[in-house]
């Protein structure tokens, strides 16, 4: 693990990515408690403020402190991204392994479900779910996780297929190990590398999707801050002040850039062979 991070750090791109990722994590984790204002506290008199010593990043159209809201939005983005990826990784890996060991019929059934899910546009799916159940953070997580499961499932299946007949798995069988033990102790650790890389590359995707859904009003319900709602509110009042848009778009850009660069560096550090040459 340390060796992997060392190899990430040694690449200039990885170093930049890692620094940005740490910055975003710090913002999301210790930003809200350190923030000088309640992110939802209105102060109409101070609306559309430019960055100042009182409001480091300015204020929005209702006079809320933009730094506090950005930090809170960062926490939302991280919460959504990490829990979504965790769910998709766990369920996808299990289904992928199951598909690799299933009978031809079972395998086909799982793959067809994967195809259906990935063929369905995330946005349409999200609108349908929100129309049915109403908006909410938990629904955003659920929707995005479901659409990402096939991602992880396909990779897990391919990795499992390539290892299924490995002598070291057969050696465990000869020793008398039960299938669950072989899977948990010997198969999963050896297929996890590419899945972790995939997960790190999917984090910026999820952050963008969450912001997009919130922008459209079907994501995180107001008044809770999200980079998407920040962007939306700033966009509608762009003529009065550019600061909300600059701050929200800037954060989104830095976060996705950071996670993408980090993901690529992680991929190269774990296994350079996974790189797809353009």
């Amino acid at each position: 693990m340390r060796a992997v991070f060392g190899r990430v750090w040694r690449q200039p791109v990885g170093r930049l990515g890692l620094l940005l990722v740490v910055a975003v994590l710090l913002l999301g984790v210790i930003g809200p408690p350190l923030a000088p204002y309640d992110p939802n506290k209105l102060n109409i008199l101070a609306r559309f403020g430019a960055p100042s010593t009182a409001h480091w990043l300015g204020t929005d159209h209702l006079g809320r402190d933009l730094f506090s809201r950005t930090a809170d939005g960062g926490r939302v983005a991280l919460l959504v991204a990490l829990s979504t990826i965790a769910i998709a990784l766990a369920v996808g890996t299990l289904l992928g392994i199951a598909a690799a060991y299933a009978s031809p019929w079972g395998e086909r059934a799982i793959l067809v479900v994967f195809d259906i899910v990935s063929a369905f546009p995330t946005l349409v799916f999200a609108l349908a779910v929100v129309a049915l159940l109403g908006p909410g953070l938990d629904k955003v997580i659920l929707i995005v996780a479901i659409t990402l499961i096939p991602h992880f499932g396909r990779v897990a299946r391919a990795q499992t297929l390539s290892l299924r007949n490995s002598p070291f798995l057969e050696a465990e069988r000869v020793l008398g190990a039960q299938p669950w033990r072989i899977t948990a102790h010997h198969l999963v650790p050896n297929i996890l590398g590419p899945l972790v890389v995939l997960a790190s590359m999917d984090i910026p995707v999820v952050i963008t999707i969450e912001a997009g859904l919130s922008f459209l009003g079907v994501g995180v319900p107001p008044p809770r801050a999200s980079w998407g709602t920040l962007l939306h509110d700033g966009y509608t009042t762009l003529s009065q002040s550019p600061w909300p848009v600059i701050v929200a778009a800037g954060m989104l850009t830095l976060a996705t850039l950071g996670f993408t660069l980090f993901g690529e560096a992680l991929r190269d550090a774990i296994d350079p062979k996974l790189r797809v040459e353009p």
Partner: peptide, 22 residues
């Protein structure tokens, strides 16, 4: 089956490949 496995063991042809790599 487990009892039989304990009593009958095997040395694999490609020894490095038969050891769980991690």
């Amino acid at each position: 089956l487990k009892a039989f496995r304990r009593a009958a063991q095997m040395i694999f042809q490609d020894p490095a490949a038969a050891l769980s790599p991690r």
